[in-house]
Computed example of a mutant assay.
Amino acid sequence: MISSRYAVAVHILSLIAFTPEQPQSSEDLAASIGVHPVLVRSTLGLLRKAGLVHTRQGVAGSQLTRPLSEITMLEVFRAVLDEKDLFSMHDQPNPNCPIGRNIQGSLEWVFLEATRGMEERLARVTLADVVDDLSHRIDTPSSLV
């Protein structure tokens, strides 16, 4: 199951995109997202490590490293989650049971194809697409955070 960290990461990037001249602290971002600032800081660290944002320790605010249209949702996914987070096998099926002994092999190809399909779709959606959709949903952008 995909953790909410992915949605948090997209939320952070969207806030940065909407307020490029207005530096947002991790507390500001957390207030919009509804999470603890520590989660925001750790997620920003992953986004920075992936080369999606530029941050400076001790200084409020982050900047995107590339235009929105050049950041895919797949890049964001890979920045904050591991493919193992999508589907996982149960660790100890009963080897004495014919189903338990073989279920993992039967599920591997299903999970692999599902992962590939999701990744192909996320590779075609950019952060610009998400931000554009958001801009049509927001009544007054000046009321952000």
Rank of each mutant, 00 (worst) to 15 (best):
T55F: 01
H90T: 04
F77L: 13
G100T: 05
S62E: 07
D85E: 08
N94M: 03
S69H: 06
L52S: 03
M73D: 01
G51W: 04
G58W: 12
A60C: 01
P67R: 13
H54S: 14
N102D: 07
L74V: 06
L81S: 15
I99E: 11
S69G: 14
F87E: 00
V53P: 13
A79M: 07
P98S: 14
G61L: 11
S88M: 08
L52Y: 03
G58R: 04
I99A: 09
E70C: 00
L68V: 12
A50V: 06
V80E: 11
V80N: 11
A79K: 08
E75M: 09
H90P: 02
P95V: 00
I99K: 09
R56N: 04
I103G: 11
A60V: 07
L74Y: 09
A60F: 06
S62D: 08
N94Q: 05
I99W: 14
V76H: 11
Q63N: 14
L81F: 13
M89K: 12
A60N: 14
G58T: 02
N96T: 00
R78I: 02
R66H: 12
G61V: 06
M89N: 13
V76K: 02
S88E: 10
M89F: 15
L52D: 05
L81C: 14
M89R: 13
N96I: 00
L68C: 15
T55S: 06
V59I: 15
P98D: 14
L68I: 03
K84R: 10
V76S: 09
E83N: 07
Q92H: 13
G58N: 09
I103L: 12
D82N: 14
I103E: 08
D85W: 02
A79L: 05
